[in-house]
Write a protein that binds this DNA or RNA. Structure first.
Lengths: 193, 193
DNA sequence: ACACACATGTAATTGGTTACATGATTTC
DNA sequence: GAAATCATGTAACCAATTACATGTGTGT
């Protein structure tokens, strides 16, 4: 059997926090690893079914009934075993495709304001993400600092923070460079982006 | 008509360096924007055909004949116009899925050496990439510094260098953290990864 | 003659998003 | 009883990779 990464994401999330519904799993993913991982329902629910069919997760008994009732899941020993196995395999990231950098690379083919607008949006996005991660760190320290996984969570968080700070420092200098190339355009729209 | 990003990548590459074959376009992409963009033949050749059918690129006449002869392409005015239009649109990056960070996040579920091994590989990959980008910068400064797109190319390059340096600084401290949590395991295999 | 780099292309598969359809529960 | 949020699921679509099949030109 071969599983996609979504399967392991589900197993991992249920390993550190069991008894969650598909909806909750997705929200947990967004709130904890959302800055480097995303899942859609279209991927999540079918994978959940498959994991259940292979007894890697089990459905918890529920009081309510009905077609669209909440269904809570937990990881089984077999699921935990598979997760551990997967973790030990070398990671594999597919080659990045960064449209922002692509548009910047071809910047000379566009009007001078275009690249500046992209950079402003990049800067803004990173500022917002920085605030999110700082808040996430505060919450994690307050509520999860005793849990065994905590040091690893902090590692990914500090990675995110380091990236964002590098991004912000770079975008500042990049904007300065563009301004030097094309002076006197400072009052141009942020609204284009 | 809607085009995928591959189409714009091709248009952009042909805009700055015309008269290239599919094979050459791919190699150019690898050598210039390879650290943030990749293209496979399975995507490249069909897109090339489509762009030609819509007169956004044209085939240059060729001396040789045969089933597998070299076919060189150049961008048309219509293609350049479309590229410029696309550049002005807000960029869109789909949510990242970083398996390395995912495995690190779930690190507590694995043997202590596992995360250390992942980090070593991460460090090694980044060291190699750093060397590649430093060399790329040297070559670009030597051969392309007079070209109009040069400042934009340097912008993406300095982005890449900033990322890599942040990665290396972070991975060093991350390894120190893991070592503090789990001392006395320093002689463990790199070979696991 | 052989190897290697150059070169074109397709078929099968996968991994994933988006949009849609629907229902349950809570809160005002 | 309306609105918001919680909740499950499917169908259509798409972008992209991988593996494969094949051929050409150059240098040793």
């Amino acid at each position: 059997m071969k599983y996609n990464t979504t399967a392991y994401a589900i197993l991992g999330i249920l390993a550190i926090h069991p008894h969650q519904s598909g909806y909750e799993i997705r929200r947990t993913i967004q709130q904890t690893v959302g800055f480097f991982w995303g899942e859609s329902y279209g991927q999540l629910y079918p994978t959940l079914r498959r994991l259940a069919a292979e007894a890697l997760i089990t459905e918890e008994p529920s009081s309510s009934t009905g077609a669209r009732k909440r269904r809570a899941w937990s990881i089984t020993p077999a699921g935990r075993c598979l997760l551990t196995e997967w973790l030990a395999q070398p990671y594999h990231n597919d080659p990045p495709r960064d449209e922002f950098l692509m548009k910047l690379f071809f910047g000379i083919e566009a009007a001078p304001t275009v690249s500046v607008a992209h950079l402003h949006r990049f800067e803004q996005t990173n500022r917002e993400l920085l605030a999110t991660l700082v808040e996430l760190e505060r919450l994690a320290r307050a509520h999860n600092s005793g849990l065994p996984g905590f040091p690893f969570w902090m590692l990914t968080l500090s990675y995110g923070l380091a990236q964002i700070r590098a991004n912000l420092a770079w975008s500042k200098s990049a904007l300065a460079t563009l301004h030097a190339i094309n002076p006197g355009e400072e009052s141009i729209s942020h609204s284009a982006n």
